[in-house]
Design a protein around this nucleic acid. Structure first.
Length: 581
RNA sequence: GGGCACGUAGCUCAGUUGGAUAGAGCGACGGACUUCUAAUCCGUAGGUCGGGGGUUCGAAUCCUCCCGUGCUCACCA
C-alpha cells in the first residue's frame, strides 16, 4: 500500500480509538476524510481534513478535535510532526525513510505501480465513436475515439474487463443517400453522366468507391431501376466506409472489440422485441405530444403516435418511437441496441456522445432504467466539439462542400501521439481549440514532447551510467541505500510520485482521463527542474562520479520517475520514446 | 422561448467532487549552457474565479436570479 492510503488508515484508526474511548460518538462517516498534498509545501508534506469533516457530526469544534487526533498520531512511527493549522487542518511531516519506501515500491512493482484492483473483474461496455459510415472520421469523432479508448485503458488497468464497442448506423435514409451518391460516382467512373447537384455526399472519398464499384462489378449494377442493384451498392459502399474507419482508428491506436450493426437489430427482430418488452412494462401508449414551447417548428402538426413514457424516468417529454408512416424513429433501434447491451449483462454501461447529442442523454438514460427495471444505470460522458485552427485562424469546415478535416488528414500532419496527448490536455466537457500549426511544432507549446523529453533524458542518463559500469537494473536499484537523497527537490518529487495512485483512482472513478495527462506533465516539470539543478551545482547531478552511493540513490529515484511516466503514457496510448530525434 | 453544458491571468486551460494566501502553459519582461540532451531551467509582471443574492466555521466549487457563449429542440439521423 502506498503512503497516502497508509496515512489515511492511521487517521481513521485514531478516530476509531476516540470512538472506542467514548470521546467521540460512534459510527461517524469517515468516507470524506482525505489525505492530500497541500498546495503550499510550507504547510507540511501531507495534510488531512479529518477534523473539519467530522466536526459537525461529532459536535465538537474542528480545532479541538484536531488536538485529540494529533495527540494520538504524534506517537506514530512514520510521522515526524503533526501540526494544526488554519480552520483545523492537520499538517504532517513524514520521516524520510518512509518516503524512500515509495521508491522501493515503484521499483518492485514496475509499471503496475499505482494500479489497484478496483474493477474486480467487473465487465464494462464502452460505446464510443459510433460515427455514421457515410464518410471518413473527422476531428469531432477523433476526440470521442481518444477519450473512449483511454478511458477503456484506464478501466482495464484497474481490473475491469472492458468491451470497446462501435455502433454502426447502417440503416435509414442517410445510408440510402450514401448509396445513391456512390452510384453517381460509379456512373462517373463508368464514364456516364455524373450529376453533382443530386449528390448528397459530394466529398472526393466516394470517387474511390465509384472506381472500386467499377472494378468489382463492371457495368452490372449500373442501372438502379432494379432496387436490388442499389442494395448491393449500399452493402458494398458501407463495407468500404467501415474499412476506412477501422483503418483510421487503427492508425490512431484505437482497436474496437465489437461492432454492432443497426441493420442487424431490424433483421433479428430485436427492435420489435425491445418495444414489446416496454409494452409489457406498460411504458408505451398512444398519445399526442404538445408543440414544443417556443420552438419555431412552423410545420408542426398535432398527431397521435406511439410514445415511450420517458418522463417517468427523468426525461422532459415522452418520446415517439414510430413515425407517421408507421416506420421506427431513430430512437427505436437505439432502444433495441441498449436492450441488447442490458441483456448481455455488463456490470457497467458507458456511452460517449458528442456534445451535439447532449439533447439525447436524458432519453437514453431513461430507456436503460426502464428496460432494466431500475437495475442498470447508463453512464454518459459528453465530449465537447473541437474547433480547428491553423496559425491562429479557424479552419472552416463544410460537410456539403466536402471540405472538412478528417482524422486521416490530422494523422498525416500531426501524428498519433501528439493528437492523443493534446486532445487529452482538455477535460472532456470543455470545448477544445486545436491549433494545427502548434501541434506540428515540436519545440513549443507541445506538452507531449515535454513529457517524452523527460523520459528520453532519463534513458540517456541511465545509458551513461551503464557506460560507467554502474549497474542500473531495477533489482540492483531496489536494494540500494537511499539515505543520501536529502534535498528538498528530491523528496518533493517523491511526494509527487506518491500521488500517482490517487491520480489513477480519480481518473477511473470520475471517468476523467485528462488527469493522467496533466499529472504526467507536472511530473515531467519537476524532473526537468531537478535535472537543471545539476547545471549550476555539479554535486546535484544524478551521476556524481566520486559518490557511488549518492549516484545509486539518484538513479533509483529517476528510474522510478521513468517507470511512472512510461506507464502513464501507455494508458494514454502514447508511445514512450527513448531518444528525441 | 425550453433543455443541457460552459464562463477562472492578455490567450489556451487545470483546480483531488465545500478547505488554507486560486495554479500551470503560452505570450511579455529579465536571467542561466566548456550539458547526465537548452526540445530545458530560474525569476518578475499579470485575478472582484461573468455579476448580484443565498446556504455555513469556510464557496471558483452547492442553491437562486440575471448577463454572455456553445450545443440542442415532435414527425431527421
Amino acid at each position: 500500500m502506498e503512503i497516502l492510503s497508509i496515512l489515511r488508515n492511521k487517521v481513521i484508526s485514531a478516530v476509531e480509538l476516540l470512538e472506542k474511548q467514548k470521546i467521540l460518538p460512534s459510527d461517524l462517516n469517515k468516507s470524506l476524510i482525505t489525505i492530500e498534498k497541500p498546495k503550499d509545501e510550507s504547510f507540511g508534506e501531507l495534510s488531512t481534513n479529518v477534523s473539519m469533516v467530522l466536526a459537525k457530526d461529532a459536535r465538537i469544534k474542528p480545532r479541538d478535535l484536531a488536538i485529540k487526533i494529533v495527540d494520538i498520531l504524534k506517537k506514530d512511527e512514520i510521522i515526524s510532526s503533526a501540526e494544526i493549522a488554519g480552520p483545523g487542518f492537520i499538517n504532517f511531516r513524514i520521516y524520510k525513510k518512509f518516503w524512500f519506501k515509495l521508491i522501493k515500491q515503484i521499483l518492485e512493482d514496475g509499471e503496475k505501480f499505482g494500479f489497484t484492483n478496483i474493477g474486480d473483474n467487473k465487465t464494462v461496455n464502452i460505446e464510443f465513436v459510433s460515427a455514421n459510415p457515410t464518410g471518413p472520421l473527422h476531428v469531432g469523432h477523433t476526440r470521442g475515439a481518444i477519450f473512449g479508448d483511454v478511458l477503456a485503458n484506464l478501466l482495464e488497468s484497474v481490473g475491469f474487463i472492458v468491451t470497446r464497442e462501435y455502433y454502426i448506423n447502417d440503416a435509414g435514409t442517410q445510408i440510402d443517400s450514401l448509396a445513391r451518391s456512390a452510384h453517381s460516382r460509379y456512373q462517373e467512373a463508368l464514364g456516364k453522366n455524373y450529376s453533382e447537384t443530386e449528390n448528397e455526399y459530394p466529398g472526393d472519398y466516394l470517387k474511390k468507391v465509384g472506381q472500386r464499384l467499377k472494378d468489382e462489378f463492371e457495368e452490372t449494377l449500373s442501372s438502379i431501376d432494379d432496387n436490388s442493384n442499389l442494395e448491393k451498392i449500399k452493402e458494398y459502399t458501407v463495407k468500404i466506409m467501415i474499412d476506412e474507419i477501422k483503418k483510421d482508428l487503427l492508425a490512431l491506436g484505437v482497436v474496437m472489440d465489437s461492432f454492432v450493426f443497426e441493420s442487424s437489430l431490424y433483421k433479428n427482430g430485436k427492435v420489435q422485441e425491445a418495444i414489446d418488452h416496454l409494452s409489457r412494462l406498460g411504458l408505451i401508449y398512444r398519445g399526442v405530444l404538445e408543440k414544443p414551447k417556443g420552438s419555431e417548428a412552423s410545420d408542426w402538426v398535432e398527431r397521435e403516435q406511439d410514445l415511450f413514457k420517458s418522463t417517468l424516468f427523468g426525461d422532459d417529454i415522452d418520446r415517439p418511437i414510430k413515425k407517421i408512416d408507421g416506420s421506427w424513429t431513430y430512437f427505436a433501434p437505439d432502444i433495441a441496441y441498449h436492450y441488447d447491451k442490458i441483456k448481455r449483462n455488463f456490470d457497467e454501461i458507458i456511452d460517449i456522445f458528442g456534445a451535439d447529442h447532449s439533447g439525447y442523454t436524458a432519453r437514453m438514460k431513461a430507456i436503460v432504467k426502464a428496460l432494466s427495471e431500475g437495475k442498470k444505470e447508463l453512464k454518459i460522458k459528453l465530449c465537447q466539439l473541437v474547433k480547428l485552427y491553423k496559425n491562429g485562424k479557424p479552419v472552416k469546415m463544410s460537410k456539403r462542400a466536402g471540405t472538412y478535416i478528417t482524422l486521416g488528414d490530422l494523422l498525416d500532419e500531426v501524428g498519433k501521439d501528439s493528437i492523443r496527448f493534446l486532445f487529452l490536455m482538455r477535460k472532456n466537457d470543455a470545448p477544445l481549440d486545436f491549433d494545427f500549426s502548434k501541434a506540428i511544432d515540436q519545440t513549443k507549446d507541445n506538452p507531449v514532447f515535454y513529457v517524452q523529453y523527460a523520459n528520453a533524458r532519463i534513458f540517456s542518463i541511465l545509458k551513461r551510467a551503464k557506460s560507467l559500469k554502474i549497474i542500473v537494473n531495477d533489482k540492483t536499484l531496489f536494494s540500494t541505500n537511499l539515505n543520501k537523497l536529502s534535498t528538498d527537490s528530491e523528496v518533493s518529487i517523491i511526494r509527487k510520485l506518491a500521488e500517482w495512485p490517487n491520480v489513477i483512482f480519480f481518473s477511473v472513478s470520475r471517468y476523467e482521463p485528462h488527469r493522467v495527462a496533466f499529472y504526467l506533465y507536472e511530473l515531467a516539470q519537476l524532473f526537468h527542474s531537478l535535472q537543471s539543478l545539476g547545471k549550476i551545482d555539479h554535486t546535484m547531478k544524478f551521476i556524481v562520479e566520486d559518490d557511488v552511493q549518492l549516484t545509486y540513490a539518484r538513479l533509483a529515484l529517476i528510474r522510478s520517475i521513468q517507470i511512472v511516466i512510461v506507464s502513464g503514457l501507455k494508458i494514454l496510448g502514447v508511445k514512450p520514446i527513448d531518444e528525441m530525434l
